[in-house]
């Protein structure tokens, strides 16, 4: 049996030992908790990336401006007006005066946006962003492109292209025909294909739209051809030249 002094020392030693053990356990618990928090944050970031990307796209859309009609940008988020059919008027040159609903209506059509995005991706291999504004009901299309020496980006995908836009292709060199599978016979003989020098400062955008053309709404539109593409349906090919290093927005009005 221990004497009083030994017993007292034993008690203090045990207390110190238990305290140290307790602190060690607390530190371990904190360590595990930190690892768990980091893991959860990481998972959250990975899971949230598509949402963040969508959010960025929405921001890009909001920032899109049209050289000829600033109302496009200002009404991107106007979902109220999206529910109404806009009165579309054109001026002498055929430019649409009201395009509010073109963008706004289509912002809610996620499924169609996906369709459009897929089409753009498969045909525009250099595009990092590909965004198309479409109002399926009115068949108004506003598309913003950005290009520079290294990349061509189609900005601000929105909207229901549906079955109307068959395909979007972007060409940044004279190899575009083979790169994008374009058939020269599709293009009318009235247009001379650009040479390599053309692509030093510009690139071409091809948009295949099913439907009868009505108004063409961009200064940089090179030509429109009605052709047979895919099935036997009639498809209009809108061909644009777009300056490199600048944002360019153009709209289609197809009936």
């Amino acid at each position: 049996m221990m004497n009083s002094e030994e017993f007292r020392r034993s008690v203090y030693e045990r207390a110190a030992e238990y305290k140290a053990e307790r602190q060690r356990k607390q530190r371990t618990a904190v360590k595990y908790a930190s690892v768990c928090v980091c893991f959860c944050v990481l998972v959250g970031i990975i899971a949230g990336r598509p949402l963040i990307r969508d959010s960025v796209n929405e921001t890009l859309i909001s920032g899109t401006t049209s050289p000829s009609d600033s109302t496009v940008a200002s009404t991107v988020a106007d979902t109220t007006s999206a529910q109404t059919t806009p009165a579309v008027t054109t001026d002498a040159t055929g430019v649409i005066a009201t395009t509010d609903a073109i963008i706004a209506v289509t912002t809610s059509d996620t499924a169609a946006r996906t369709t459009a995005g897929t089409q753009a991706t498969t045909t525009s291999q250099t595009a990092e962003e590909h965004n198309v504004y479409v109002d399926d009901s009115e068949l108004k299309y506003a598309i913003t492109f950005y290009g520079n020496d290294d990349e061509i980006a189609i900005l601000s995908t929105l909207g229901s292209v549906g079955s109307r836009i068959e395909r979007i292709a972007v060409a940044d060199s004279d190899e575009y025909m083979s790169r994008f599978g374009l058939d020269v016979s599709m293009i009318s003989a009235g247009y001379d294909l650009p040479d390599e020098a053309f692509f030093d400062s510009q690139y071409l955008v091809f948009i295949y739209v099913r439907g009868v053309q009505s108004n063409v709404l961009h200064d940089e539109l090179i030509d429109i051809w009605t052709l047979t593409y895919g099935a036997d349906d009639e498809v209009n090919l809108y061909l644009y030249k777009v300056p490199r290093g600048s944002y360019t927005t153009f709209r289609l009005d197809v009936e």
Binding site: M2, F7, S10, V11, Y12, R14, A15, Y18, K19
Partner: peptide, 18 residues
Amino acid sequence: NLTVAEDIAADSFAELII
């Protein structure tokens, strides 16, 4: 068991400290 009893008593006192 006296040895065990001492251990337990010491642990009990240590509990007051911890």
